[in-house]
Design a protein around this nucleic acid. Structure first.
Lengths: 141, 141
DNA sequence: CAACACCCTGTAGCCGCTTCAGGGTCAAGC
DNA sequence: GCTTGACCCTGAAGCGGCTACAGGGTGTTG
């Protein structure tokens, strides 16, 4: 299987496949006599695994870690569990902050109904005021 | 006000402040005789505005656009409204996909309860199986 | 034998910072 | 006077996760 075929089969850009190889996420394939990469079924599985994990928003480093576990079936794998747990926490935190964001944006949108000039813009006005208050308040960072 | 003071007042890293200046988000400050940057109250407001918008997850380009409107109070500002609307759509889309993610991760976490070796790891098993199915299915990308 | 789709390598660009190298400035303490 | 230390300066490089480009080679079709 050449790189373009692998790309089509998995929906992954060929540049991305070469990139994964470069950073060690995808094992180096054999080469045809003309230098073209020649992929096997196992590469396809590996790439699908990587993409699935990416869809779960894992970092490439985390995925590499999971691949290592797959390569060492006898290793103890408590870390896998911890990795997923961490990921879940990250995602939940992000959802929370995005919800807050959504509320703020929805409120802003209401401020700017009819056509007008920037000086009278409710959104701009709100943004400036909010920023000013944050600026005044002590910054807990 | 020197850069360190501005940083403390706003909770922004000095390197980030210099970066904002470089990319044109923050007007260039006056300089002391020794070359140190000297910030005014208006810089503080501007920086607070930028950070507030960043907290709303806007890109630097979008923030620059808002700053331009603030600088031209007579301009018609329908674009401000559209910008917020777009932002809101982006955030809502992201929340949706993160919720799906959360469900998947929560399901995975259950697969891996007691200590065991990688070969018997429910999480790894699930990930591989799911990836395999996606690989088989047509890829709608 | 020319056009075209595909493949190769290596490098640079994207965003929004962060970090580093290699310096200069200035107030306080010995 | 001299050192220490906190602060400041510039410019360049690095991060993740790609994406895009330059400048070539290969292989099939008309």
């Amino acid at each position: 299987m050449r790189i373009g075929e692998l790309g089509k089969a998995t929906g992954v850009d060929v540049e991305t496949i070469r990139y994964y190889e470069k950073v060690g996420l995808l094992p180096r394939p054999a080469r045809h006599s003309n230098g073209y990469r020649s992929y096997s079924e196992s590469h396809l599985e590996c790439l699908a695994f990587v993409r699935h994990c990416r869809a779960l928003d894992m970092t490439l480093a985390e995925i590499k870690c999971l691949l290592d576990f797959l390569g060492q079936p006898l290793a103890e794998c408590g870390d896998v569990d911890r990795l997923i747990e961490q990921q879940l926490i990250r995602v939940r935190t992000r959802i929370k902050s995005l919800r807050a964001l959504e509320r703020q944006l929805a409120a802003l949108r209401g401020c700017c109904a009819t056509p007008h000039i920037a000086a009278d813009c409710g959104i701009l006005h709100e943004l400036v005021t909010a920023a000013r208050q944050e600026g005044r308040a002590g910054n807990s960072l």
